[in-house]
Design a protein around this nucleic acid. Structure first.
Lengths: 185, 185
DNA sequence: TAATGTGTGTACCTATTGGTACATTATCAG
DNA sequence: CTGATAATGTACCAATAGGTACACACATTA
């Protein structure tokens, strides 16, 4: 029997997709075992804290990805206009044009919310803050920038919900076009 | 021992709150038993189809409530402007200023989504259609009305997600003020 | 080659899950 | 009062849940 030796970092993206598809409670160990190809032995070796630690690792990776690809450019790029446009493009790509849900948003509505409240809060707070900063650099008043930033993130999350509910990704695509326009004019 | 005899219709609102709080999978029969005060005997007498039938009854009641309180006025009221204003007021009240989540939206992101796909779809489709109609009666072009209606429902759902994620109901309150303004000017 | 570390598979555990069966009790119409 | 129907409580069930224990395999370095 071939034992392919794995690393923890290889498993996290797979776990992310599992949690997205099945939710936290719905992602049973048997499903996780099946989809990752790892037995309980390996799973609990990498994540001694069990499912909670798995989800926390996933959230940490998501936070890291957004920080690097989106938040940091928004905050620091010389050209804010371009940074915002690239944010929109990255969001469309990341959420597969509305066919992929936002795990953090889904967890926020879940009953396990409290267990991950800090990470959920940070994810959205950091996003809004970064976008706020970019909008201010673009010349908006602080209050206007704050309102626009909050509205944009609300819009993205709402579009993901409705696109999923209506089973119609074009809702998300339309929303993203509108959002980009609102942020860059 | 006192046996308080109940009716099915008394139980549905309690079930709604339970599903809101715990999600579909998280709402175990023991929780349902505890919160409703009904034993399994009564529960399966009222809902022979088990949890699925309970959730379906809840969704049907929600659909009925929105149809009567919101969709129908939007479609048929002589004064669309007022109907829209009353929709916003009813939404703020219904979602307890952002402290209460939208069960239908939460189910849309859940892994049991497929089981309730039809009801979830209908809920949002009917809402958008009714608002669309009201906006057209207000004088908007059909395409503009459709876009505004879709954007408003997206906004409401997104605001519920972010208010919950940031544990900050004022996000929802701000959003509702903005939405009412966008729809009535 | 021997020892050490990181991995891995399997057997096992208890608690809980959704659901069924059924005898029993209220309630109310005739 | 009597019978039927509506409602209820309890005992039970197989399946699965998350988690633990531990012997074992692999790769790497000394």
């Amino acid at each position: 029997m071939v034992k392919t030796v794995s690393e923890r970092s290889d498993v996290v993206p797979v776990l992310a997709e599992i949690f997205r598809e099945h939710g936290f409670e719905g992602a049973s160990l048997s499903i996780i075992t099946e989809k990752t190809g790892l037995g309980k032995g390996s799973l609990y070796y990498f994540f001694p804290g069990g499912k909670t630690e798995m989800a926390q690792a996933v959230l940490a990776e998501i936070e890291g990805w957004f920080e690097k690809q989106i938040y940091s450019p928004l905050r620091e790029a010389a050209d804010s206009q371009t940074a915002i446009r690239m944010m929109c493009a990255a969001v469309i790509e990341y959420f597969k044009s509305g066919r992929r849900i936002c795990l953090v948003g889904a967890l926020a509505l879940d009953n396990v919310r409290d267990r991950f409240a800090l990470q959920i809060n940070n994810y959205f707070a950091a996003w809004i803050a970064a976008l706020n900063k970019a909008l201010q650099k673009l010349g908006h008043d602080p209050e206007v920038a704050a309102a626009l930033a909050e509205e944009a993130i609300i819009d993205i999350q709402g579009a993901l919900v409705i696109a999923r509910a209506l089973n119609n990704p074009s809702v998300f695509e339309r929303a993203m076009i509108r959002i980009e326009k609102q942020l860059t004019t």
